[in-house]
Amino acid sequence: MRFLHLSDLHLGKRVCEFSMLDDQRYILEQILSLLDTHPVDAVLLAGDLYDKPVPPAEAVRLLDWFLTALAERKLPVFAISGNHDSADRIAFGSHLLAESRVYMSPVFTGAPEPIPLADEYGPVDIYLLPFLKPATVRHVWPEEPAESTQSYSDALGCVLRRCKRDPAHRSLLVAHQFVAGAAVCESEEPSVGGLDSVDVSLFEGFDYVALGHLHSPQNVGRDTVRYCGTPLKYSFSEAGQQKSVTFVELGPKGSVSITTEPLTPLHDLRELRGSYMELTDRRAYEGTATDDYLHITLTDEQDLPDALARLRVLYPNLMRLDYDNRRTREQQTVEGPARAEQQTPLEHFAAFYQLQNNQPLSEEQAAFCQQLIESIWKGEDDA
């Protein structure tokens, strides 16, 4: 039995205030084309279908279109909610969708029940486990000792111990958690200290574990516990990655084959470095994909007026502009920590805004922020 493993679509995501919707539709169309040339028996969607718990209408329509296209190909779909999703919204209409063999994870109320498939080698039991926090598990089983659901790993173990698995059947788990030992990137960091990590040993007994949550394609612990990664690059820490989809084939019990197929984005996400004169030299950019999403680091010793706007004439999708010169290096190594302690809350926010949007706060925005900060302080003082 052959599966397509996808995760972390993050439909509706914006990167540096650039909407990814057109890019997301393009890559989903490419995935559908791959399915037409690389047939599968079912599709696994391992969470973070949306980028926000309340997604924009355009993102909802895009997921609706994609699920409909899969259903038209007579493909069963097994989808779960991730930490970016609203479990209630993902579960909405799940009973109706199941009639079209689109199985959406329900809001967590207990150990998942297997959804059976079968081929010439016998049954395959599929378990859908949405993103879980310890508090969610404690709410369902308040009688459990506190220590048995204290950590993410404890809570997940509590759930999986209750799964009714037939050891003679092949079994497949779709989950959305951070597994200890996996490599992370800045677009999807685990919590401080790895408190949300789970132990890979909890997945013993499953023939394949289709994971979502981390954006880099990778195996953890063993080949059959796998993150397929995002279909698109969502941060510049992923610029060097080759995005792909994962195909999983279950043969007889104990036989699992995993292959990948590369994906080509509508716009790649790349980093460029050099002086302004180097990057605006026709010989440097002619024949290249100048409409890619770019992070440019200028090495000029002097900051250039309106450099962002001027560079966007040649590179219209320039997302982020930095300098690497004596001034910035001195700020990082000498002035950085001291300066940070001296900055006002408004200065901190203004620096963050500049980093995210490649433009400074307007006077009106700065005044509004300062008023908001003062009102918060006043509220604390009154309390």
Rank of each mutant, 00 (worst) to 15 (best):
R25F: 03
K13E: 06
P55H: 04
I27E: 01
I31D: 01
L6K: 01
P39E: 06
P55G: 09
D8H: 00
D51F: 00
Q24M: 08
F18G: 01
P39G: 03
Q24I: 10
G12M: 03
L28Y: 11
L45Q: 02
R14M: 07
Y50L: 14
V60I: 14
Q24L: 09
R61V: 14
Y50D: 14
M20A: 06
E29P: 07
R14G: 00
L11H: 05
D23H: 05
E29R: 14
L32Y: 06
V54S: 14
K52A: 12
V54R: 10
L9K: 04
V60D: 01
R25S: 07
L45F: 09
L45M: 15
L45P: 04
M20H: 05
L34T: 10
L6I: 11
L49D: 07
I27T: 11
A46T: 02
L34D: 12
L32A: 05
V40M: 09
K13L: 11
S19I: 03
A46I: 03
A59M: 05
R14F: 08
K13I: 11
L45V: 15
K13G: 00
I31A: 04
D23S: 09
S33C: 08
L6M: 12
K52T: 15
A42L: 02
S33W: 04
L11T: 09
L32D: 12
L34F: 12
A59N: 04
I27D: 01
H38I: 15
P39Y: 02
H10N: 04
E17N: 10
I27L: 08
H10E: 03
F18T: 07
L45H: 01
E17H: 10
L62M: 13
P39C: 02
D36A: 12
A59S: 11
R61F: 14
E58N: 13
Y50R: 10
E29D: 15
V43P: 11
M20L: 14
L21G: 01
D36S: 12
R25H: 09
R61Q: 15
C16M: 03
I31N: 03
L45G: 05
D36W: 03
I27S: 03
E17S: 12
L6Q: 05
L44G: 08
K13F: 05
R25D: 10
R61S: 15
M20W: 03
R14V: 06
V40T: 13
D48R: 05
L9R: 00
S33P: 00
Y26R: 10
L11I: 08
L21N: 05
D8P: 00
L32C: 14
R14S: 10
E58R: 14
L45D: 04
V15W: 02
P39M: 07
V43A: 12
V43F: 11
L21T: 09
L11M: 07
P39V: 01
L35H: 12
Q24T: 11
C16F: 07
L45T: 03
K52H: 13
D36F: 02
D22S: 07
